[in-house]
Design a protein around this nucleic acid. Structure first.
Lengths: 185, 185
DNA sequence: ACCTGCATGTAAGTCGTTACATGATTGA
DNA sequence: TCAATCATGTAACGACTTACATGCAGGT
């Protein structure tokens, strides 16, 4: 219940890979999973507390009080499987680019080109990021049993970025070259 | 300010295409733009009021009080251009499928296959929907100056759905056939 | 007479982000 | 000793959804 179950998936899932501190979890989620799922800082701590009370995670207070490593418990693993099995609750779509392009007549053709060009650039950037991530993680995680799944996730990002690029090219072709109807004769 | 500017784009944009009642706007946004951008009911009314106070839209009270058609004013058009020009504020990613797949080891290979297969089916469904939408709108909107932009928007959806299908096929191939290691000899 | 669809709004509540506040540890 | 980084948490605020409440018009 409490704390949307999706956040619990992220937290329990992170601990299913290895025990870590809340701080480390925040970074892990930001740097890797963050490409597909975001959790804000203010969610992680309360969720950890809830899970601790429920006995799904346990706090291994390091020698120093000021740094507790969390680990998942057997009941936590069971809970994670339960949550993973629930159908993904679909987030309503919110694509700022398409919202703008939809009303492109008002914005003007040239501005739309810029918009699409920007989207293309950012998709190219993402593509490079994903490919680097794949290489980097293949080195560090390549031998863990989690790797095949992580890889598939990143692969989805790659397909997505490529599709965005292909679409942008098609759109740019249809929008024509700039100034086509304005200054030259 | 007030009421995230993105909602204002949707509302002013809808009126830039043609004047309509709040109710009609809700339906238009749900049925067409809804594939890429969602606005809930409870957002539209307050936003219309805010915009009316600012003079960006005007209410043409039909003969019967109980049905007011809203229209965009010149200042509203200016405001829309201003908003469209602002960079799209990126929504943090929230992909429930990838969140689950990422922790696929815990879920188990067979369950993951089901997950991906489900995603593939839903992408196929979306693809069909987009293609139908394209056909349907080509008939009703095909001659309006907004059409080229609406078309590009739907095209983005088509590219996206195709990419999802291609990814799913790749993923299914890598996840192997079901029962491969369980029951048969 | 009644049901469905058009139409307008409000209020409560959830969800999530951001900013703030605090302190320990470590290396320069 | 001073700055940067690791680390933990809270509180206020804002965004968005849902459910609720109301009523008219037109067709059967």
């Amino acid at each position: 219940m409490a704390r949307s179950s999706q956040t619990q998936i992220a937290v329990l899932g992170a601990l299913s890979i290895e025990p870590m501190t809340a701080y480390a979890m925040r970074e892990a989620i930001r740097d890797v999973l963050g490409h597909f799922w975001s959790e804000s800082f203010g969610q992680i701590y309360p969720t950890l507390q809830t899970l601790e009370e429920a006995g799904h995670v346990e706090r291994r207070g390091g020698a120093r009080a000021r740094s507790s490593v969390f680990a998942i418990t057997p009941s936590g693993t069971a809970r994670l499987v339960e949550l993973l099995t629930e159908p993904a609750q679909k987030t309503p779509p919110r694509n700022g680019l398409l919202l703008r392009l939809f009303f492109g007549r008002t914005l003007g053709r040239d501005r739309c080109r810029e918009l699409v060009q920007g989207a293309r650039n950012s998709a190219e950037g993402r593509l490079v990021e994903y490919e680097e991530l794949l290489d980097r993680l293949a080195g560090t995680e390549g031998h863990t049993p989690d790797w095949p799944y992580i890889r598939l996730t990143i692969l989805a990002g790659i397909h997505d970025a490529r599709a965005a690029i292909a679409w942008a090219d098609e759109a740019l072709a249809e929008l024509g070259t700039p100034h086509e109807e304005s200054d030259s004769p």
